[in-house]
Design a protein around this nucleic acid. Sequence first.
DNA 1: CTCGATTCCTGTTAGC
DNA 2: TGCTAACAGGAATCGA
Length: 288
Amino acid sequence: MPELPEVEVVRRGIADHVVGRTITGVTVHDVRSVRRHLAGPADFRHRLEGRTVVGAARRGKYLWIQLADPEGGASDAILCHLGMSGQFLVSDASAPPQRHLRITLELDDGNELRFADQRIFGGMSFSEDGAELPPEIAHIARDPLDPLFDPAEFAARIRRRQTGVKRAILDQTLISGVGNIYADEALWRTPLHYARNTRHLRTREIESLLGHIGDVMREALAQGGTSFDALYVNVNGNSGYFDRSLQAYGQEGGPCQRCGTPIRRDPFMNRSSFWCPVCQPRPRNGRF
DNA sequence: CTCGATTCCTGTTAGC
DNA sequence: TGCTAACAGGAATCGA
């Protein structure tokens, strides 16, 4: 399940292997993967063919491929989201199609940039004037690895909310790039229970949580970045980080690495929350 | 405006 | 053995 670190690895892969190439052909194998391109798959193809890739950028879990402008105006982009199973691969054009291949971009060096996505939560769309920041994602907040991310603004905004702290950090308009896995890890490290009310968080709790969110992402990025394959633009959530370093997510019944208490799992937003009942006590009536 | 439930998808696995 | 149900979850959408 790609979160910010995994998307950043993909961005670097595209920057290394696709920048400078011209798109010579486009095949949409499954229209659902371009459903956010409202003009449809034929328009998607026509907009991309002949364009040259000049960069790859990212905000949170969104990634966009920057295109040279053929006419001298503001530049366009291909906006991409991996959803929960999306993968980009750079393959020789003669290589057999991958399982779940949804979109193929033919390049002028004999390679193809391929988008495979089992569950089709992800997808691509053409973003007019989107090279700097696609207008479609202008509502997405900066992520904690962005030099311009503003911790004070985040603290002020989260405290204006009246909801559980995990809901808040999963809200991409408050802070972007955090998914279910790293949310649980950061909350365990801080430690905070996922249902703690945002309105009553202490300043030092918010600052600590932010620090741990950044730490978790930087650690995952350091590990994911080392397992990059030249012809396989990494990747989904199968980085080594998953098996070795998770201390809360997926650890139901296992001992908390701080206190030994069995980790609990609660249903949460149609998914799960993993937490230590001793280190991260559930807020009670009258307490926050 | 904010909050929270619902929906979109498919492959794997647990349970009967 | 074969079927069904649960589960994984990012983010848009909608009702309250």
